[in-house]
Every structure is written in structure tokens, then in C-alpha cells.
Simulated assay, not measured.
Amino acid sequence: MSELYNIIDKKKLDVVTKPISKAHGLPNECYTNKDYTLIERKKLFEDKWVAIGVASSLPNIGDAKPYDLLDLPLLIIRNKQNKIKVFHNICSHRGVKLVHKEGKIKNVIRCPYHSWSYNFDGELIATPHIGGMNKHTHPQFNKSKSNLKEIRSYIWLDLIMVNISNNEMPFDKYIKPLSDRWSKFWKNSDRDMIKHSNDYGYFKLEAKCNWKFAIENYCESYHLPWVHPGLNSYSKIEDHYHIQGLPNRFAGQGTVVYNPRLKGKEKFPCFPNWPKNKENIAEYVALFPNVMLGIHKDHFYAYWLEPKSNDLTLEHMEIYYVGDNAANSKKFKSLRKQNFKLWEDIQKEDVDIIQGMQIGRKSNVYNGGNFSPAMDNPTHHFHKWVATNIAQ
């Protein structure tokens, strides 16, 4: 790890993992240094399970999306068996990027350079003139050794999760601590009911800051009175509790006063197995590194981050309801619109703050941050996760 310690003083990382009363946050270099970001890409985004989109955004066979993860080109496609597949988005011939725009691919993934073509399972099926003019095979060339490189993937609550290095434990085991926690709210049959809203189910925000600031901010409720005065008027800071998931893969907060203030006679249907004695509880958990989840009795959302560089992040909000009627019928359209506006306004308030933190990290007197031993535990949890994993 000499490369890492040429960028960051090891002592600055060691202090992050100390008990919260003695710890500082991650040093400035973790937010401002481009070379460090490449280390983070490997340690946090290639070696861990990360979100790169949602399956419902590719509803039909042949739907394809390119996705660049900190300049690493990936391709998401729905194959002819109606399954999501993820590949490295490069031709095995000369390494040209295959797909540049989101859209529907009719029959084959065709390279724009020499027209080598792949089916939706990544198999190389056509190599024009590889053996000379009008000779499309060659006895010394084995197509099966030049298929697209598939990336390990798993669909969970519509999220497309990938483990690029293929080194992590199976995702169902990885997510089990959080699934077990949320089993007190909903059963498998409830989770199967979530439906993405087609009209007010998605928005995207641009944050001119490092992706970690969004996670740090999401983990804690300490900022509510000053950043979200509207929200804090009915879900006050004292109504929240901390969540620190062990093993250290997630952290966040919960509220005991969830009571949606949406206008109109109608109310969203609730998850059938949500306990009556937990109707006013909602939880907001960051699944490291890049997913922020919100679970409520009447809707669910996944707010996932797309890091573009050390100081630019795209934030994607996906909103789900209980059944297709709640998600897409005219009956609940007004409620969906109100709920959409509520979350969009709240997240915009957060963007203003986290962009300010990026500016602050240019100060050479800032020590990474001093934590409140009472209020910042989930955020410190995340800082420790980053420091521990990049130093491995």
C-alpha cells in the first residue's frame, strides 16, 4: 500500500478508526486527490458490491445501458431469457467501447470498429473477414475465448448490484444483516410487491462534490433542524435513533414519527405484513458504498450514487410503492406527485450542504473533522469502513 501512503499520511487514516471521542474524519486527500480516487475505485467500487442502476429501467429484451464507473466502461443489458446481464463494455478484439448510448439493441452487440458481434449473453458470434476477405472464421482463432467479460451481478429490490472483482461473498449472504433487520417490517412477499412509479418515480440531481459526502450526510439526523426545517417541524431531531449495522456494511437513522402529510382523501396502500405497532417507524440506511435506502409502511426508495470524479457525483432517486395500482394508477397520481416533490426538495437541501463541504476540504487547516460522540456515530461508522477497506 505504498502508493496509498504516498498520497495520505498513514497516521491520518489510523486516527479515523479510533473510538469516536478520539477520532478525526477522513483526511482532505480522500476528497480532493484524483490519484487517491483510483485507489478508492479499486478498493471500494470494484472489490465490494455496488449499485449501478435498477432493473426496471431496462424492461424489455435488448434494452441496454452503458455505465462508466469512474471511467471504467460497463454495459448493462436484458438478455433473451429476460435476465439482466452486466459486461465490461469493450470489444475483445481491439478494446473499443461497444455501446455509447442507452437504447434498444435489436439482435447483436456490434463493435463499431471491425463489426465483431456478440449475442446478449456476451458470446462472440460473428467475426467478419477474420480469415481474409469473405472468410469469417480462422482455424487458429477460437471464438469462445473472446467472449465479453461478464461481471458478477445480483438484482436486489430492483437494484443492479455488481461485484466487479468477483472477490466478495455471495450477495444474499452479504446483505443478510440488513435483510434480517428489516424482516421485522416486511416479509419476502411484501418486498415482491414493490413497483416502480413510471410518472413520479425518478429524479436525478448533480452534486459538485465527492460521493462520500452524500453518504456521510445521509447517515445522521443531526443536521435536520438547520438543513431541513420543514421536515424537522414534524419529524424532529429528537424523534430519530441511530443505526449501526454489524458487520460494518451499513449505517443510518430511523424515525419513530413517520406520518406522511400528503393532501387528499386517499392514502397509499401499506405493505400487508407491516406490524401495526411499527406504523410510525421509518428507517433510512446507507448500504456502503453507494446506496441510500428509505423504508416506510407505504413506500420504499433507493437513492443510489454515480461517482463521476473526485468532485462530481450524480444522485439517482428511484421511488417504489405497494403494487402497480399505487405505483401507476390515476387514483394515486396526486399523492405520488406530492411524495416526489417532498423527497426532491429534501434531497436538494442536502446537495447545497454537501457541495459546501467539498469547498471546505480545500482548507489545509482542516483535520478531517471532529465528531460529536452522541450524534455522529453512524457517520463515524462509515468513515471507519472507508479507512479500513482502502488500507487493506
Rank of each mutant, 00 (worst) to 15 (best):
Met1Tyr: 14
Ser2Glu: 13
Glu3Leu: 15
Leu4Asn: 10
Tyr5Glu: 05
Tyr5Phe: 15
Ile7Val: 13
Lys10Arg: 15
Leu13Arg: 08
Thr17His: 08
Pro19Thr: 06
Pro19Phe: 13
Lys22Thr: 03
His24Leu: 14
Pro27Thr: 01
Glu29Ser: 10
Tyr31Leu: 04
Tyr36Phe: 15
Thr37Leu: 12
Leu38Lys: 15
Lys42Phe: 07
Glu46Arg: 11
Asp47Thr: 06
Asp47Gln: 13
Trp49Ile: 12
Ala51Trp: 01
Ala51Leu: 09
Ser57Trp: 01
Ser57Ala: 13
Leu58Ser: 04
Ile61Glu: 12
Ala64Cys: 11
Ala64Gly: 03
Leu72Ile: 01
Leu74Pro: 01
Leu75Gln: 02
Ile90His: 03
Ser92Val: 00
Val96Ile: 07
Leu98Asp: 04
Val99Met: 08
Lys101His: 15
Glu102Gln: 14
Gly103Val: 04
Lys104Thr: 14
Ile105Cys: 10
Val108Pro: 00
Val108Arg: 14
Ile109Lys: 08
Cys111Asp: 05
Pro112Tyr: 08
Tyr118Lys: 12
Gly122Arg: 09
Glu123Gly: 03
Lys135Pro: 02
His136Pro: 04
Pro139Gly: 07
Lys143Asn: 10
Leu148Ser: 04
Glu150Gln: 14
Ile155Asn: 12
Leu159Met: 15
Asn166Val: 05
Asn167His: 13
Glu168Thr: 05
Lys173Trp: 00
Ile175Asn: 00
Lys176Thr: 08
Asn188Gly: 13
Asn188Lys: 15
Ile194Pro: 09
His196Gly: 03
His196Ala: 06
Ser197Pro: 02
Tyr202Leu: 00
Ala207Gln: 08
Lys208Phe: 10
Phe213Thr: 05
Ile215His: 01
Ile215Gln: 00
Glu216Cys: 04
Asn217Thr: 10
Ser221Asn: 09
Tyr222Phe: 13
Tyr222Arg: 12
Pro225Thr: 01
Trp226Asn: 11
Gly230His: 11
Gly230Ile: 14
Leu231Lys: 04
Ser233Cys: 07
Ser233Ile: 07
Ser235Asp: 06
Lys236Met: 08
Glu238Cys: 08
Asp239Ala: 13
Asp239Phe: 11
His242Met: 13
Ile243Gly: 08
Gly245Phe: 12
Gln253Thr: 07
Gly254Ala: 09
Val257Met: 06
Pro260Trp: 12
Lys263His: 09
Gly264Ala: 03
Lys265Tyr: 03
Phe271Glu: 06
Asn273Gly: 06
Asn273Gln: 07
Asn277Leu: 01
Asn277Pro: 00
Asn277Phe: 01
Glu279Val: 04
Tyr284Val: 06
Val285Lys: 02
Pro289Tyr: 00
Lys297Ala: 09
Leu305Ile: 09
Pro307Gly: 04
Ser309Thr: 08
Asn310Met: 10
Asp311Trp: 09
Asp324Ser: 15
Ala326Trp: 02
Lys331Cys: 00
Lys333Thr: 03
Arg336Thr: 00
Asn339Asp: 07
Asn339His: 11
Phe340Leu: 04
Phe340Cys: 05
Glu344Asn: 15
Gln347Pro: 01
Lys348Val: 02
Lys348Ala: 07
Glu349Ala: 11
Gln355Ser: 02
Tyr366Ala: 09
Asn370Ser: 14
Asn370Gln: 14
Phe371Ser: 12
Pro373Thr: 10
Ala374Tyr: 13
Met375Gln: 15
Pro378Ala: 08
His381Asn: 13
Trp385Asn: 03
Trp385Phe: 15
Val386Gly: 11
Gln392Tyr: 12
